[in-house]
């Protein structure tokens, strides 16, 4: 969300009045930054058994310009192992050839089952953001608890997807489905 700045000086009868209007900054979406940091951070907690050639692609399925911008800032000049990180934005599953991480926006959650069947066993970390989706196959599902961004982890879904789960991530998850 935008950061709000009030440059607002109280009215003084005998002095020069200096009343400045709020200045709104357009690029401070705190939640998108937190999600971007999580998404990049996950690369350190999973092992992709397949998908080791070419770039390490992170795909955002659906519209979320702020998240794409923050992901761009997060992965700039970074790599996963020897793979350079590449960022893509698609609107349908059919448009996605190959990806290592697939983040599905809440609006595109209905495409989860299509994604699961297309990428089964292909080492794709599927991340969603809607209640209950970890239980139906997303490896990571963002949730909100105590006003904070947290995530659920489905270890079984990770194994089915062809991902090895690192030891530390369970401790970070709000809940784990084995």
């Amino acid at each position: 969300m935008r950061k709000l700045i009030f440059l607002f000086i109280a009215f003084f009868t005998l002095s020069a009045d200096v009343v400045e209007r709020p200045v709104l900054q357009q690029k401070d979406d705190t939640q998108s930054k937190i999600k971007a940091v999580y998404i990049y951070g996950f690369t350190k907690y999973f092992e992709w058994t397949n998908n080791k050639e070419g770039n390490f692609t992170i795909t955002v399925l659906g519209e979320n310009t702020n998240l794409l911008n923050e992901l761009g800032n997060t992965v700039k000049n970074k790599s996963v192992g020897a793979q350079k990180i590449d960022l893509k934005n698609q609107q349908t599953i059919g448009e996605i050839d190959q990806t290592s991480i697939l983040y599905i926006t809440p609006d595109k959650s209905y495409l989860l089952s299509e994604a699961l069947s297309k990428f089964k066993g292909k080492s794709v970390l599927i991340i969603t953001e809607k209640q209950g989706l970890a239980k139906v196959g997303a490896t990571i599902n963002f949730i909100v608890e105590e006003n904070k961004q947290k995530f659920e982890l489905n270890k079984l879904a990770a194994t089915r997807a062809g991902l090895n789960v690192g030891s530390g991530i369970e401790k970070l998850a709000a809940s784990v489905i084995n």
């Binding site: 930054k33 937190i34 940091v37 990049y40 951070g41 996950f42 970070l172």
Partner: peptide, 9 residues
Amino acid sequence: YDVPLDKLP
């Protein structure tokens, strides 16, 4: 942007 996930909370 590189903050470790265990520090993010």
